[in-house]
Write a protein that binds this DNA or RNA. Structure first.
Lengths: 228, 228
DNA sequence: CGGGATATTGATTGATTTCAATGTGAGTGG
DNA sequence: CCACTCACATTGAAATCAATCAATATCCCG
């Protein structure tokens, strides 16, 4: 099923040391800590595929994950990126509506859906957490629709950077785990336009590029202004 | 709160006769039949607003509803259209992430969220129905992202028409309850491009226009082919 | 220290938007 | 009942933003 130099391994001891990022806490995270199984996925390895039955819920421990859909001719739309502390795959349906892959080598915790749902029956607070995680996914998708349907390239890149900025605890040094190609497929642009727009933002003194994957937010307010 | 020639009325007897459309049945629809209150909304009247607390769940009896977000400068992105039989406003969060308006004069049933949730506690099947309605909303949003991020104008219009076609039970005469402006804001295009593209589809013998709001699907397969 | 993948930058094209004019139709009031 | 009117829709011409085609540049990674 996996055409790549795929490698994913169940893992008791061989857990990759996680950079000390502040990770969101929630009833869900606790559940993962209790009943979750830790696995590592190499970059670009599939975690689940579209139309597969939903068997697990997932939490990113380290690394990053993208969910996406592809058209027959290869055009790809990335739905969301998940960073450490984020949970994904909580879709209510019985089958996945999209696919998930590791963006970079990632450590992921899996909890069996059936087990979590059984716990929900005994713990209403957990049900609440699950429901609200699903809600925030929907809300993010709705915001994303506004970006794709109605924003210019510069506005799209600005909202993307602001989103990452916020999710990395507003630290002005942003580490991008994903390629320009991923960003382009998330924003509905080409890699060239993403690259040019990042250069433009740099020339406007909104950001500084240290390397392609590391940048400094010099003016969050300028980015917010562009966020329309 | 409502700047328009707004008019919405609670309604016991004055229910607008509903055209005899086949309406989806589900545990949810039953709930609305039991605990729902019927209201009428004139065209363009707000049903709920972004950031308002979620008080009710809604079901379209007749007419049509749009949910949307707007940017400061007025750019609007329509998230979804709801047709008779559809339920909406089931967002899990405590506050609405978007606004809802009647597209045309519509009859809507409202059920108090708290009442429905109380019923869920006693009826797992209902919980299932609620969960799966929410899931289909998320899945629709994900498909919409692919359309907005990666499809051409012709593909967008084709997928829109196919979606309405399917939801109106594959009858080849399609009634569009919404304006070109609404369609444009749903598809991330301008009204001119929507209009031109519909003309293009007509010239390709995929559809025939009887009037702006009424068209005939001459070749669903041509539309599907464009659907990429 | 290469070397291939990834990213940037430039030149040109092209799809969609914008600006503009005309057409159409539903609802209203005379 | 018809004419009028205003909102909505179509069509055309020009402009524009992003895509495409193309040529370096840079950065990991072995």
């Amino acid at each position: 099923m996996n055409m790549r130099v795929a490698k994913s391994e169940v893992d008791g001891a061989k857990v990759i040391p996680v950079a000390n990022k502040s990770v969101k806490q929630s009833a869900l995270t606790e559940v993962f800590a209790i009943v979750g199984v830790t696995m590592n996925f190499d970059a670009n390895v599939e975690i689940f595929g579209e139309a597969e039955p939903v068997e697990y819920f997932y939490e990113v421990v380290s690394g990053a994950v993208r969910t996406y859909k592809v058209l027959d001719d290869g055009r790809r739309q990335i739905d969301a990126f998940y960073l450490p502390g984020d949970t994904f795959g909580l879709e209510a349906g019985s089958h996945h509506a999209l696919s998930a892959e590791a963006v970079s080598r990632s450590t992921i915790r899996l909890a069996k859906r059936s087990v979590v749902l059984a716990m929900v029956a005994r713990d209403p607070e957990l049900g609440q957490a699950l429901w609200s995680a699903a809600a925030s996914g929907l809300s993010a998708a709705q915001e994303h629709l506004l970006v794709l349907g109605r924003k210019t390239a510069e506005e799209r890149v600005a909202s993307f950077l602001l989103d990452i900025f916020r999710r990395e605890a507003n630290r002005d040094v942003i580490e991008l785990p994903m390629s320009r190609h991923d960003i382009a497929d998330y924003l509905g642009l080409t890699i060239e336009t993403v690259s040019r727009t990042i250069s433009l933002l740099e020339s406007e003194n909104a950001i500084t590029l240290q390397s392609a994957r590391r940048l400094i937010v010099k003016s969050a307010s300028r980015l917010r202004q562009l966020n329309a």
